[in-house]
Amino acid sequence: MNIFRLAGDMTHLVSVLVLLLKIHTIKSCAGISLKTQELYALVFTTRYLDLFTDYISLYNTVMKLIFLGSSFSIVWYIRRHKIVRRSYDKDQDTFRHYFIVLPCLVLALLIHHKFTFKEVMWTFSLYLEAVAILPQLVLLQRTRNIDNLTGQYVFLLGAYRALYILNWIYRHYTEPHYVHWITWIAGIVQTLLYADFFYYYFQSWKNNVKLQLPA
């Protein structure tokens, strides 16, 4: 494990915890896309099927369980919690799941390393993770007032992806057999989706003004 990978995982972990804590303490999910959260729950479910078949490390297993548990908790809060669900703005969060899920599934069936159930599901999870943030980004653009925590959540998610790219570059040079182009392409696409958001995030930070995305 290199420093970029660890920093990436920790950023990812903090992003999820920030979101869960925000929802839990202020009992509101305003500005959060349920669609994105459901897609992440699907990403983790399909990617971590190997929990049942392979043991990699304690770190790996624990982190996988945390990501699964937190993503399903967030979905539960937004859908079922009697106070939190009232703050969910259904009319703004209009992105259709199948516009994202179907193309990813078709792509995973066509482009993969091995045609086995586990491998296709793993590949599907990579493609899906790359675009799962889209409903959240659309929602951010529609919400004129982005609260600090939501902005930080999206920023941390983007930072996690950027750190993973550094991790791959590092591994590419230090581990000669480490080649995984599907991961790379999906990961680069995913990081690019944040480019626009990053630009406005840093602008607002530099000028010390509230984050707002242009319409």
Partner: peptide, 10 residues
């Protein structure tokens, strides 16, 4: 192995 195929990542 898991490391070679990147499956050791999250």
């Amino acid at each position: 192995t898991a490391a070679e195929s990147g499956k050791d990542e999250l």
